[in-house]
């Protein structure tokens, strides 16, 4: 998990390809997060709300990008900031791929601070979450 190379502007982060989202996963996330909005778990409700069926919690998709970032920073690094805009809907069966691009790097007190754009995209090439992250990793 520890990565001691130096990051460079323009460098790609990820990809982390998640398994297809399942309805069971949406029920699990509802329970784990306490967000029981039925648009995520009850098809009839979601259809009446005009969504054409249940959609994933935005925070679930953000957590996928968070997993990618945690794997990048490893045990010795720190995630400093992480922000996302929710730009599309994820449905059961969708495969979310998380990626990023390094924008800026800076050496700070023996660590490299990296600022990056990050996003999650479905198999239809739709960006469903997009934002930024800043993390610090030890210098090799």
């Amino acid at each position: 998990m520890e990565r001691m190379e130096r990051y460079q502007p323009g460098q790609a982060l990820g990809p982390l390809v998640k398994p297809p989202v399942t309805k069971t996963q949406l029920v699990m996330y509802s329970g784990a997060s306490g967000d029981f909005n039925p648009i995520h778990t009850v098809d009839e409700f979601a259809e009446q709300a005009g969504l054409g069926g249940v959609i994933a919690h935005g925070m679930l998709t953000m957590a996928f990008v968070g997993q990618m970032l945690s794997e990048i920073v490893g045990v010795e690094g720190d995630l400093l900031t992480f922000g996302i805009r929710f730009t599309g809907m994820v449905r059961p069966g969708d495969v979310v791929t998380c990626e990023g691009t390094v924008k800026e790097v800076e050496d700070v007190e023996g660590r490299q601070v990296v600022r990056a754009d990050v996003w999650g995209m479905t198999q239809k090439q739709e960006r469903v979450v997009a934002g930024h992250a800043e993390f610090a990793v030890p210098l090799g």
Partner: peptide, 13 residues
């Protein structure tokens, strides 16, 4: 209601 965006600013684990 729609969740538009979410940001975290981490200080300590």
């Amino acid at each position: 209601l729609i969740h538009g965006s979410q940001e975290f600013n981490y200080k300590k684990p």
